[in-house]
Amino acid sequence: MTEEYGALFKKKTIQCILQSFFKDEKTKMTNEAIHLSRELIGLFITEAIMRSCKEAEKDSTTTVSIEHLEKILPQLLLDF
């Protein structure tokens, strides 16, 4: 993912979120695993925004609302 597009998250933020789900506190993540997780989350967010924008266009509006996100969310979760 290029830095011009998409959502970017701090490495430490992703690491903390993922480690909160580990059962063993001693579990470590490599830098590569954190980087790939960061890329995947960024792609997921970008795709959600793009789909919500298309849904707003269908409704002939220039404002994306929570309703647009709610409409695309089930299919987005199935796709990912």
Results as ranks from 00 to 15, higher is better:
residue 72 I to C: 02
residue 46 T to V: 06
residue 61 T to L: 00
residue 52 S to I: 11
residue 75 Q to S: 13
residue 40 L to N: 13
residue 5 Y to I: 11
residue 13 T to A: 15
residue 50 M to C: 13
residue 33 A to S: 07
residue 43 L to S: 07
residue 9 F to Y: 11
residue 50 M to N: 12
residue 33 A to K: 08
residue 21 F to D: 02
residue 70 E to C: 02
residue 72 I to F: 08
residue 63 T to V: 14
residue 11 K to D: 10
residue 60 S to V: 12
residue 37 S to D: 09
residue 9 F to W: 10
residue 30 T to Y: 01
residue 31 N to P: 01
residue 54 K to A: 12
residue 79 D to S: 13
residue 1 M to A: 13
residue 19 Q to E: 10
residue 29 M to Y: 08
residue 66 I to E: 15
residue 33 A to M: 00
residue 54 K to S: 15
residue 42 G to L: 00
residue 61 T to N: 07
residue 27 T to N: 06
residue 76 L to E: 08
residue 10 K to R: 12
residue 8 L to A: 13
residue 27 T to V: 10
residue 21 F to C: 02
residue 16 C to T: 11
residue 32 E to W: 04
residue 52 S to A: 15
residue 74 P to K: 03
residue 42 G to K: 02
residue 25 E to Q: 12
residue 57 E to F: 05
residue 36 L to E: 04
residue 46 T to C: 09
residue 31 N to A: 11
residue 30 T to L: 02
residue 53 C to D: 03
residue 55 E to Q: 15
residue 51 R to W: 03
residue 80 F to I: 10
residue 16 C to L: 14
residue 6 G to Q: 01
residue 60 S to W: 09
residue 76 L to C: 05
residue 73 L to K: 14
residue 68 H to D: 15
residue 58 K to C: 12
residue 1 M to W: 01
residue 40 L to I: 10
residue 55 E to M: 02
residue 69 L to R: 00
residue 76 L to Y: 03
residue 46 T to D: 15
residue 3 E to N: 04
residue 59 D to M: 07
residue 38 R to P: 07
residue 5 Y to Q: 07
residue 63 T to W: 05
residue 42 G to I: 06
residue 1 M to S: 09
residue 45 I to P: 07
residue 37 S to H: 00
residue 43 L to A: 13
residue 8 L to Q: 06
residue 13 T to G: 00
residue 29 M to N: 05
residue 64 V to D: 08
residue 77 L to D: 01
residue 76 L to D: 07
residue 61 T to R: 06
residue 45 I to T: 13
residue 48 A to I: 11
residue 79 D to P: 07
residue 35 H to W: 08
residue 19 Q to H: 07
residue 3 E to K: 00
residue 31 N to E: 07
residue 54 K to C: 14
residue 13 T to Q: 01
residue 44 F to C: 08
residue 28 K to N: 05
residue 10 K to V: 07
residue 66 I to C: 12
residue 12 K to F: 10
residue 70 E to Y: 06
residue 13 T to L: 15
residue 55 E to I: 10
residue 73 L to Q: 15
residue 63 T to K: 14
residue 78 L to R: 14
residue 78 L to M: 14
residue 29 M to C: 04
residue 68 H to S: 01
residue 40 L to G: 12
residue 34 I to M: 00
residue 45 I to L: 14
residue 53 C to A: 14
residue 13 T to M: 07
residue 54 K to P: 03
residue 72 I to H: 08
residue 59 D to Y: 04
residue 20 S to M: 05
residue 45 I to K: 06
residue 20 S to Q: 13
residue 25 E to T: 06
